[in-house]
Design a protein around this nucleic acid. Structure first.
Length: 656
RNA sequence: GCCGAUGUAGCUCAGCUGGUAGAGCAGCUGAUUUGUAAUCAGCUGGUCGGCGGUUCGAAUCCGUCCAUCGGCUCCA
């Protein structure tokens, strides 16, 4: 630290451990880091001043709390990757003069930049060239320098450059809060912060190239988005790429094929999954599990047809909103008669509710169905089992009094949590989706009802102490909702469970119950699907478990491996004993050596392999091998049955 | 739907700048009767995604359509 010179104002800097140190006004975060240690100064990326992230080189002129951010901090990584996006832009501008730039933010892993390449055509083959340029520029140790500019200056700069995207962004900003960042020959409109210089960027990988609409609006021009990631060490990049490869091995589309769970047929149609025998076994067990839970919770199962008359959807309001962009209606020999493949189960369930008069004493009425629905998703949207055109919702609709809404909502949340626990989903995001308050015409139903519904959800989340993310404008058109999202192997977020409060459909269907005042009242409806859909749930479950399902769920719990044909009879005896005890097993009776059978069973991820040969037949035992763990030694058949049933109980014991 | 890439046997993949298709696994047949992650041999199997075009000649070049993959947009 500089010696104190009279006339310099001192400022108090508070560190995360609440220690306070004095520095001269105008000291930078980097200098503060250096005052602690040279090593820290080398690693500091940016600094958090109070609640704002700053450049490490920006002078601090007031008392503040400080946190020095490094690669270990999420915000530090953010700064690092955002600076990398600038480096990408600079490289691109040098290689392709005259290109125009959209935005270039950091993301969870890495960064991207949206670029209008004009007349250049760019493909993934061009990426290595850009990577090399980036590395070359990084080594030049270019300083990132921050400059405050007036709106006028900003507009002039980008008018001259001819970048209409930046001009549009600047026009949305207020004068007095516009900053430019300059690195090398590249100047960008940017709030910052940035690295001190580019030399900290040591390893660069541009991952892929994609189209992205300017400002996310499909009516506007599509820019070219380049995704990339950078690291301070080459080793970290290598590790990251290995991790990506590993993640791909968990892809549910690959595992679904390998484990013979499901497949798609071009002849049947895109986005229409076909469940194979093993996948069906798995799915049926999931359904049985939820049916048991729901029976306990007072649900009643129903079964409805797969099509519904157009009048049903006119009543529900879905026809007006989705009629055109959906599967087209099914016509009949009767002129004017139209049916729709059902895109959701709620209208049918409203009719179930209406099938007889309801008393307040009957409520809540909980109507459940594993309902298969069909939606015409855009072709580019389809993705394995996670986004399909035909799928089965573990749907239910709860009809209750307004007073019961909160309790019912809580009851549903308990079921979701139970499922997540049974299947070991520890990391999930709970999102509350509310209305976009500035764009209310997107939604149907009264303001008053919306406010009531939104309030109920927020209160329940609060009472349950659930950590939530609130998203405005993400609500369904008929009501607010709470969704549970889980990430797949590659970090993409998928919505699984959903709970939606709906004050609108009961109105449209004129649903009623007789209250204790002998008057007619309108029930409230709660839509809910704890799995979301069987397809998506199984997809995410596959990626979480890498195909090693819990014992209670897995299609085959055991496989019997006779050493040779001589022991076929004995194998069959073992199988029938297992089957009698409700253990799902099969025999590998191929003319193969034991090693081969074991290898194949390991690859099919069957939890228990039971080797039987001369010794086992003589002693009435099986030699047990656990998938992924190896030989556990011989056990009496009855002991193994008992052991396996106990294992299943351990998994489900507390839950059921 | 949009941008970009890909499409060879059931699966995983090879096939240089155009000369008429190949491996491993799987399957079938036979031999072997096997002890904790691949027994050996033989055989079958492909209008090289579909359709057009250029060419003496196309898996290879061009166009178009379809499907898949990575994103964008969308997701009742």
């Amino acid at each position: 630290m500089h010696p104190k010179i009279s006339g310099y104002r001192m400022i108090n800097i508070t560190f995360p451990d609440n220690r306070i140190k004095q520095y001269e006004s105008g000291t930078t975060g980097l200098e503060i880091a250096r005052s602690i240690s040279e090593g820290l100064a080398r690693n500091v990326i940016s600094v958090k001043i109070n609640d704002e992230v700053w450049d490490a080189t920006r002078p601090i002129t007031f008392d503040a709390r400080i946190k020095l951010l490094t690669w270990e901090d999420e915000e530090g990584k953010g700064t690092y990757w955002h600076s990398s996006a600038h480096l990408l832009a600079e490289a691109v501008e040098l290689l392709y003069p005259g290109v125009k730039f959209g935005i270039g933010p950091h993301i969870e892993s890495g960064f991207y930049y949206d670029i209008d390449f004009g007349d250049y055509t760019i493909s993934s083959e061009d990426l290595p060239k850009i990577e090399n340029k980036m590395l070359e520029l990084a080594r030049e140790k270019q300083l990132f320098s921050r400059k405050e500019v007036t709106k006028q200056e900003a507009l002039e700069y980008f008018s001259q450059k001819g970048d209409e995207y930046k001009l549009e962004l600047i026009n949305d900003l207020a004068d007095g809060q516009i900053t430019f960042y300059e690195s090398g020959k590249f100047t960008d409109l940017c709030r910052g912060p940035h690295l001190a210089d580019t030399s900290q960027i040591k390893a660069v990988k541009l991952l892929n190239i994609a189209g992205a609409y300017w400002r996310g609006d499909e009516k506007r021009k599509q820019l070219t988005r380049i995704y990339g990631i950078t690291f301070p060490k080459q080793k970290e990049l290598t590790d990251y790429l290995v991790l990506l490869e590993e993640a791909k091995k968990r892809d549910h589309r690959k595992l679904g094929k390998d484990l013979e769970l499901f497949f798609f047929s071009q002849k049947v149609g895109m986005g229409l999954p076909i469940w194979l025998p093993k996948g069906t076994l798995l799915r049926e067990r999931l359904e049985m599990f939820l049916k048991r839970v729901q029976k306990k919770a007072g649900y009643q199962q129903v079964i409805c047809p797969h099509i519904g008359n157009v009048e049903l959807y006119k009543t529900s309001g879905h026809y007006q909103k989705y009629g055109e962009s959906s599967f087209h209606p099914i016509t009949t020999p009767v002129p004017g008669e139209e049916f729709f493949l059902k895109p959701m189960n709620c209208p049918h369930h409203c009719e179930v509710y209406k099938s007889k008069p309801r008393s307040y004493k009957d409520l809540p009425v909980r109507i459940a169905e594993f309902g298969t629905v069909y939606r015409y998703e855009q072709s580019g949207e389809l993705h394995g089992l996670t986004r399909v055109r035909g799928f089965t919702q573990d749907d239910a609709h709860i009809f209750c009094t307004p007073e019961q809404v909160k309790d019912e909502f809580k009851g549903v949340m308990d079921i979701v949590m139970l499922i997540f626990k049974a299947l070991d989903f520890k990391e999930f995001i709970t999102q509350i989706s509310l209305r976009d308050k500035n764009n209310k015409e997107k939604y149907i139903g009264s303001d008053e009802n919306w406010d009531k519904a939104e309030k109920a959800i927020l209160e329940v989340a609060e009472e349950r102490g659930l950590k939530t993310v609130i998203e405005y404008g993400e609500a369904a058109f008929y009501g607010p909702k709470m969704d549970f999202m889980v990430k797949d192997a590659l970090g993409r977020k998928w919505q699984l469970g959903t709970i939606q409060v709906d004050y609108n459909l009961p109105d449209r269907f004129e649903l009623e119950y007789i209250g204790n005042d002998n008057q007619k009242h309108r029930p409230v409806m709660i839509h809910r699907a704890p799995f979301g859909s069987m397809e998506r749930f199984v997809a995410v479950l596959l990626e979480h478990t890498a195909g090693k399902f819990p014992l209670w769920l897995t299609p085959d719990q055991a496989i019997i491996l006779p050493i040779s044909e001589k022991y076929q009879k004995y194998a069959e005896k073992v199988l029938s004993l297992l089957n009698n005890s409700d253990i799902r097993a099969q025999i590998d009776d191929r003319n193969e050596k034991a090693g081969k059978k074991i290898r194949d069973a390991e690859l099919m991820k069957i939890p228990y392999m039971l080797v039987v040969g001369e010794k086992e037949e003589g002693e009435g035992t099986v030699s047990v091998r656990r998938q992924g763990q190896g030989d556990l030694g011989p056990q009496k058949i009855d002991d193994f049955i008992h052991f396996l049933n106990e294992e299943v109980k351990k998994e489900l014991g507390e839950i059921l």
